[in-house]
Amino acid sequence: MRIGIVYDAVYPYSIGGVEKRIYELAMRLCSHEVHLFGMKYWPGSPQRTKGHITYHGVSPAVPMYKKKRRYPGQVIRFTLGLNKYLNNHMGRTKLDVLDVQNFPYLPAFVCKEYCRKRKIPFMITWHEFLGSQWEEFGLVGGIGRIIEKKVLGLTKNVVAGSPLVQRCLVSRGIYPISLITNGINLARIRQAKPMREHFDLIYAGRLVREKHVDLLIRAAAKLKKSVCIIGTGPELSSLQKLAQAKGTKASFLGSIPEEELYQRIKSSSLFVLPSTREGYGLIVQEALACGTPVITTNHQKNGARLLVGREFLFRASVQGIIDKIHDVEKHPHIPSNILSKDNPPRPFLDWDEIADQYESLLRKIVIHPSVAHPPI
């Protein structure tokens, strides 16, 4: 099959859950021809082929965040570039199926029209659903909510990347939905050895407002615990200043190789995810596989909460983090991956198994496309 996958950020130039998922799946679809459409992070030609994967840089790589928020100009520029590239450069190469990630929404309309004209099966993979949470963004949020609702009706070929997203889509009348979660690289995690440098607490992820890393820094200062913060983002500078002002023993490591990430997690006593917006929380699954206990917020938009038990959930506040850390320290015998009764244990799946599920779904869509491409 010729498989097309669309997302503006490209791994490893950008490190996030969605681009990591796309990379892991694409690497394992080695018996197929995979085309990844994203921003052009590399010099030279917009098209770069590595083995069975062809990367298409459809627009210049510009920062995704401006003034600590997602930059609409980047989304518009990528969408226009994608439209031009698909129509001007993909005329002779007909894809068998095109998978566009739901966020940042606008590219989905371009892909829909492109697939309708060329009679290509079209699917959308949803990694998060904001719904009423758009209200937090004012006027822009109102527009975003309308666009998100429109994207819901573009195709019947729908994939949810997590149980939380699946529930949200079902509640909006979207059915059937294929659930294909994220996987982990079990072999790499097992091979990773703990480092000599130890941290009491660790966080890894984008440094953006909804991750609430500031709460972790404040809690670590009050507890006089060391904290390792891995990742980059628009909040980096303000978080560094906060750590200095509070006297927090914090180490900001930026983006690091995957092997070192696992080593750092294994060398830490507790992984803390204060986020109130997670579609799935891949890093939580990886931390648990490393054998490190995880605590995270008890928030309805935090999909990562479904990966841990109620014993490891806290309210999104400094005191909430402090209280939960004390609870975990008092009961170290509680397994780090125990799940609550309403969320029965699920084994961690390797990316190989997830890729098999993904490939099987793509074959079904190609053979029996369920959408007739109604006009937008």
Rank of each mutant, 00 (worst) to 15 (best):
Y280R: 01
G303C: 03
P345V: 05
Q285P: 01
Q319T: 08
K341G: 08
S336E: 03
I338P: 00
P335I: 03
L307D: 02
V318C: 10
G303I: 10
N337E: 14
G320C: 02
Y280L: 15
A316K: 04
P332R: 11
N343F: 09
G309C: 02
F271Y: 14
F312V: 01
L307N: 08
D327G: 03
N302E: 14
A289C: 07
V308W: 03
L270I: 07
P335V: 01
A289R: 04
Q300W: 14
V272N: 13
L306D: 12
G320M: 12
Y280F: 13
I338G: 00
P274H: 12
E329H: 03
S340C: 09
E311C: 07
A316I: 05
R315F: 11
G291T: 11
Q319M: 06
D342I: 12
I295N: 04
C290M: 12
H326M: 08
G309R: 03
R315D: 14
L313Q: 00
T276F: 12
I295E: 07
Q285C: 02
I322F: 04
G320W: 01
N343R: 12
R305Y: 04
K330E: 14
Q285T: 11
H326N: 13
I322G: 07
T296V: 09
S268E: 05
K330C: 05
N343Y: 09
L313Y: 04
S340D: 15
L339H: 02
Q285A: 06
P332K: 12
A304W: 01
V328A: 10
T297P: 00
S267F: 10
T296C: 15
H333I: 07
T297D: 05
G303F: 03
C290S: 10
N337F: 06
N298M: 13
I322N: 12
D323Q: 13
A304D: 05
P344A: 11
T292P: 08
I283T: 07
V272H: 08
N343A: 12
L273F: 03
G320E: 05
R315C: 09
R315P: 11
G291Y: 06
P293L: 08
P345Q: 05
S336C: 15
A289K: 01
P345F: 12
T292K: 06
P274E: 08
L273Y: 03
S275W: 00
G303H: 11
S340A: 07
P293M: 13
A289W: 03
I321E: 09
L313T: 11
G309F: 00
S275R: 06
V308R: 05
E311R: 10
P335K: 02
G303Y: 04
I295G: 10
K330L: 07
K301I: 09
Y280C: 07
E329L: 13
D323A: 11
I321V: 14
L306H: 00
S275V: 06
N343E: 08
R310H: 11
